[in-house]
């Protein structure tokens, strides 16, 4: 080994020796007995402070982990895939059986006829019914006729 290489190797060894001295750094005597007591106290306090919901979630998590998280995930995935397949495979136009007795009846088509029969009085802005019956429609549905606007002339604004 050449001299610079030797020096580097010595330097590395020296650095390691110095770092190894850190193993003598220890906490005060009696620290570890106190540590265990503190741990037990914290555990108890934690148990008291945590909500029943978080405890339930944690226990459920542990239970599922015991049962086999991956198997649960696979089973859930397979169930979802089957459900999707069933929906896709059902013939188009045929209702999917909802699994309960839905009320059955005839559906009568509704024609798109006028909602009322009559005329609209453009001057008064009201509906004049064709028959005797009165049709109560709100006035905002029909605006009064404005001849200027109809002719495309500019609107006169009164000040």
């Amino acid at each position: 080994m050449s001299s610079p290489e030797r020096r580097t190797a010595d330097g590395l060894e020296r650095a390691q020796q110095l770092v190894r001295l850190k193993r003598y750094e220890q906490p005060d005597e009696g620290y570890f007995e106190g540590f265990l007591k503190e741990f037990q106290q914290r555990q108890r306090a934690d148990l008291m402070q945590r909500s029943s919901r978080s405890l339930f979630c944690e226990r459920l998590g542990t239970y599922l982990a015991d049962f086999g998280g991956r198997r649960m995930l696979l089973a859930g995935g397979a169930a979802c895939a089957l459900a999707l397949l069933f929906v896709r495979v059902a013939p188009e136009g045929q209702p999917v059986d909802a699994g309960f007795d839905a009320p059955r009846g005839e559906v009568t088509p509704v024609s798109a006829g006028p909602l009322f029969e009559g005329e609209i009085d453009l001057w008064e802005g009201m509906v004049v019914p064709a028959g005797d019956e009165e049709i109560d429609l709100p006035l905002f549905m029909v605006e009064p006729f404005d001849s200027r606007r109809a002719a495309g002339e500019p609107e006169i604004i009164e000040l």
Partner: peptide, 14 residues
């Protein structure tokens, strides 16, 4: 890491 430590602890070399 040893190379870095060596540089930082240069003054404590033999």
């Amino acid at each position: 890491a040893h190379r870095q430590l060596q540089n930082h602890l240069e003054e404590f070399r033999r």
